[in-house]
């Protein structure tokens, strides 16, 4: 469990990023984090592995306080991948980059190979194994970046907007693969996103909103349907779906639709029943 209690964070230049955040991230579950720009999502992501230490309150990862725990232990427990894969990939060839993490752990060579094999397999990257990273598309690089973190077998995997610049199909594939991996290892996945389709399968959604004072606070922490019920009426929720307009207009016209319709097909199905 990752526990956040009354967590507040202020940057050195005194800008508040988060205030009074209380949150539980459970292993084996998918937690989504949504919110508009400036609500502190990325700050929250970094607090989860102790890259940032809270200015107030505590962050505990499996009972370890991030402000006092050994960073190596924390990094092993919580992995982080973010947007912009060009700034996360350090090697020339896909295989080398994915192996980078396990190599840093000092694992025996054959174990490193096994981990690399497994991760490449589960993310459908096996064909790209020996490719030069410079030749990959943005979407492929993003998957490699996530692969590199998965190869460390963290207990918790934090993905900060990794699907933002991917097209919906590629995003779906990546998240499906991550889901398979997480289920296999009972790992917890935390996903910062703004797409409706990505929060629906979550076990819990944390919605952040900016405050007057500047720091983001938790506006809601509940199941996707509940969060969605409010969020879709709020244009500043940080949640996007091309369907919101249609669905909301239909509701205004008196049509009963369940709040969690995410694709055109689902809208049609809902209408026809």
């Amino acid at each position: 469990m990752i526990r956040l209690r009354q967590v507040g964070f202020e940057y050195p230049n005194r800008t508040a990023a988060l205030s009074d955040v209380n949150l539980d991230i459970e292993p084996g579950r998918l937690t989504a984090i949504i919110g508009p720009n400036g609500s502190g999502k990325s700050t929250l992501a970094r607090l989860l592995l102790g890259l940032l230490i809270p200015s107030t309150g505590t962050v505990e990862v499996e009972g370890l306080d991030t402000s006092t725990a050994d960073p190596a232990v924390l990094r092993r427990l919580v992995g982080l991948a973010w947007q912009n894969p060009d700034n996360q990939l350090v090697c020339g060839v896909v295989e080398d980059d994915v192996a980078f993490g396990p190599e840093n752990l000092g694992l025996p060579a054959h174990e490193v190979d096994d981990r690399v094999d497994f991760v490449l397999e589960i993310l459908n990257l096996s064909d790209l194994r020996f490719r030069s990273i410079q030749t990959l598309t943005l979407a492929q690089k993003q998957v490699v970046a996530v692969a590199g973190v998965m190869a460390l077998r963290p207990r918790y995997l934090v993905l900060d907007e990794v699907t933002s610049r991917l097209d919906p199909a590629a995003a779906q594939d990546l998240l499906a693969s991550v889901g398979r991996w997480a289920r296999q290892y009972d790992a917890g996945v935390v996903m910062v996103t703004h797409r409706l389709t990505e929060i629906l399968p979550a076990d819990a959604v944390c919605r952040l909103e900016p405050t007057q004072a500047g720091g983001g606070r938790v506006a809601a922490f509940a199941k996707p349907d509940e969060v969605l019920r409010e969020a879709r009426h709020d244009p500043d929720s940080g949640l996007e779906s091309p369907l919101f307009d249609i669905v909301l207009t239909l509701e205004d016209l008196g049509v009963d639709l369940p709040p969690n319709v995410a694709t055109p097909e689902e809208v049609v199905e809902a209408l026809c029943h």
Binding site: I246, T249, L250, L253, V255, E265, V268
Partner: peptide
């Protein structure tokens, strides 16, 4: 398109709002 396939009388291309009204 999908609704039309199911026999609904709705415009495929139309002005803003017309589709929703027709669906409603």
């Amino acid at each position: 398109l999908e609704l039309r396939e199911r026999g609904w009388n709705v415009p495929v291309i139309g002005a803003e709002g017309k589709l929703e009204e027709a669906i409603a």
